[in-house]
Structures are given as structure tokens and as C-alpha cells.
């Protein structure tokens, strides 16, 4: 399955391509094996915003970790810009659900985490630039412990972007935030995406968030993790959540979710 662009007529440049991606976790004891991903094939265009949604356990985080190069044992192929992904590196920025800022470095030092090989002046310049991009100017010398959840996540996004990666991978980046901050951060994320013109792949369990941000929403089913449905979203940005088309898409996706949830939560006596 590939995501075929319908609106763009120019030949789309494929950034990430996976073919028959399968990942099996062997349990430590015994012979139990868990198929986290089964035959996942997906193509992501350069500059595209793709969301992967699905119930927990559907392998969406595993997929992202393979993209990031953090999991290196899998079957099938996965390429970034035509090159096989076989390890993490600065061409792939990652934002985790927990911000993972290092508590012993200041916010500025955290953002400059991947810039150590640059001259000091350039480091400082880039840190400033990205602090501004995420609206944290003035917090360069604060400790991560002094930031609110939303601010810390913004710093994490800046840290991932500062080394100018080709692709930004977001693993439920807003999952730990309260509802209001979340909506606000979704807007910020969209702004950053527009400004940086970078490919983004986001894992989320929030269908509305996915629809608000993505060009394409990939729905996955659990055990084994498979692509169930690919939904292109052709709505003008910034998107209106009350728009009937938006609402319809949301309903459709939730139905897929709902069926799954029904079988999960109903039990026999």
C-alpha cells in the first residue's frame, strides 16, 4: 500500500519508503513471539505530515522507533531518501512523549545537544534561533525542572530540529499535556512544520489531533500491527475542527477505532 498523492500533479519526491516491514519481538522466556508489525508498506512524501493512529499495542511506536534507527532488527526494507536506515543519526530528529531533556543541562545546553561539533558562535546562534522558533526566548539558562510540561516539550522539539534533520519523528509528543495546552501546541507544531518545511511523522492516539495536523492519517490495527486504513486529508490549513468534512472524517476513523474498542472492553461471563 502506498499513499498516492491525489492533489499534487508534480512528481512527488518520496522521502521515506517502507516495504513489507515486519517486526517480531521474542519474549525473553519461552517461545512466545509477538508480531508488533506485519507487512507494513508505506511511502511518505518529502515535506508531508503523516500521522499514525491506532489503539495501544498496534505497533505504532515500534514503527517510529525503526524509522528513528533505534530498532535495527526487522524484516523488510525501510529507506530514508533512498538509503537504508540502519541506525540513529542527526538526519532523523526524534521527539518523545516524555520530553527527555537532560535535567543537568540548561534549556540552552539541551537544545544545543546535537551541535557540539560546530564552532561555539554558531552553536549559540542556532540555539537562539530555535529558542525563538518555539517561543522560549529568555529561557536559555533555565533548568528543565523549572519549565511547565508544554514548555519542556517545546524545548524538546527545538532540540530535535536544531541539527536540521531531514525528518522529524514525534512519538505522542503532546500525549502528556493537558487538553488546553495540547490544542495550543498543535497550532504551534503546525506553524513550525510550515516554517521548517520538514517531513514529519507523528504517532498519536488522538484522532482529532491527527486530522488537524496531517496530510495523511494512517490507521493501524493491533496484534499483529497492520495498516488498516489510509486517509488523505485535503482541508485548507489552519483547519477548522467544526468543519463538517473534518467531523465526518473524524467519525469515520472513530468507527474503526470503536469496533476495535468494543471487542477489547466487552467480556464474557
Amino acid at each position: 500500500m502506498t499513499v498516492t498523492p491525489t492533489t499534487m500533479t508534480a512528481t512527488p519526491t518520496i522521502d521515506v519508503e517502507t516495504r513489507g516491514l515486519t517486526k517480531i519481538f521474542a519474549a525473553r522466556h519461552g517461545t512466545a513471539r509477538i508480531t508488533a508489525l506485519e507487512n507494513v508498506s508505506l511511502a511518505i512524501r518529502r515535506g508531508e505530515f503523516v500521522s499514525i493512529v491506532g489503539a495501544s499495542g498496534c505497533g505504532k511506536t515500534t514503527f517510529l522507533r525503526i524509522l528513528a534507527g533505534l530498532e535495527t532488527e526487522y524484516e523488510g526494507s525501510i529507506t530514508l531518501d533512498g538509503l537504508r536506515i540502519d541506525g540513529p543519526g542527526p538526519d532523523k530528529g526524534v521527539v518523545f512523549q516524555d520530553h527527555r531533556l537532560l535535567p543537568w543541562l540548561t534549556v540552552g545546553e539541551n537544545i544545543g545537544f546535537g551541535l557540539l561539533d560546530l564552532p561555539k558562535t554558531e552553536q549559540r546562534e542556532r540555539i537562539r534561533k530555535y529558542l525563538r522558533l518555539v517561543g522560549l526566548q529568555g529561557f536559555e539558562r533555565a533548568w528543565p525542572a523549572q519549565l511547565s510540561g508544554g514548555m519542556a516539550q517545546r524545548a524538546a522539539i527545538a532540540r530535535a530540529l536544531v541539527s536540521k534533520p531531514r525528518i522529524l519523528l514525534l512519538d505522542e509528543p503532546l500525549g502528556a499535556l493537558d487538553a488546553l495546552t495540547r490544542v495550543y501546541m498543535q497550532r504551534e507544531l503546525e506553524k513550525i512544520w510550515t516554517r521548517e518545511k520538514i517531513t514529519m511523522v507523528m504517532v498519536t492516539h488522538d484522532v482529532e489531533e491527527a486530522l488537524y495536523l496531517s496530510d495523511t492519517v494512517v490507521l493501524m490495527s493491533a496484534r499483529p500491527g497492520r495498516i488498516k486504513k489510509i486517509t488523505p486529508v485535503h482541508l485548507a490549513r489552519p483547519r477548522d475542527r467544526e468543519n463538517p468534512v473534518f467531523q465526518n472524517l473524524k467519525k469515520e476513523l472513530l468507527v474503526e477505532f470503536g469496533l476495535r474498542a468494543k471487542s477489547l472492553f466487552s467480556y464474557e461471563i
Binding site: G135, G138, F139, R141, S148, M151, E188
Partner: peptide, 21 residues
């Protein structure tokens, strides 16, 4: 440290009330 933040942070309008919490 806190004081330094308070004086140098030009309370950017872009992130609403929350960051100034």
C-alpha cells in the same frame, strides 16, 4: 536563577498565559 528568568524573559506573546505560570 529564577530572578534571571523573570527579568530576561520578554514574555513572548506567542505562548499565552501558561508559560508564565
Amino acid at each position: 536563577d529564577d530572578d534571571a528568568n523573570a527579568t530576561t524573559a520578554p514574555s513572548s506573546p506567542s505562548f499565552g498565559g501558561r508559560s508564565r505560570r
